[in-house]
């Protein structure tokens, strides 16, 4: 389990209903890494087929995967809640 944060890094976990990345603990990620890069790693690890219309949230706040962690005002130790948007209705 990774709990030691390096300088200019944060500790990140991605959590979904299909599993988590990493499975336990957190990964050291540079604060200038784009969030979408980390989400892609998680999706590949958990083997999620598609994340169309998914949202990433930290402590209830939606974050922008196109921005890096610092630009999303994220630091320290975080868990990203990743899953389908609220949807609604149908055809």
């Amino acid at each position: 389990m990774n709990t030691e944060k390096k300088e200019n890094h944060l500790l990140v976990a991605v959590v979904t209903t299909s599993g988590s990345w990493p499975k336990e603990g957190y990964e050291n990620i540079p604060i200038h890494q784009k969030v979408k890069i980390v989400l892609k790693k998680a999706v590949d690890f958990i083997q999620i087929v598609s994340t169309d219309n998914w949202i990433a949230k930290v402590e209830g706040r939606e974050i922008n995967p196109e921005n890096n962690f610092e630009e999303n005002n994220l630091s320290g130790t975080i868990s990203i809640d990743y899953g389908p948007r609220e949807g609604g209705g149908g055809k």
């Binding site: 994340t51 949202i55 055809k91």
Partner: peptide, 27 residues
């Protein structure tokens, strides 16, 4: 919605059990 078949959604992202619960939770 009687003409909108489940077959149009079965197996699609977001419509598995976890996906549905996530949609409901986020709503």
């Amino acid at each position: 919605h009687l003409n909108d078949s489940w077959e149009n959604y079965k197996g699609q992202p977001g419509y598995d059990l976890g996906g549905m619960l996530s949609q409901i939770y986020n709503a």
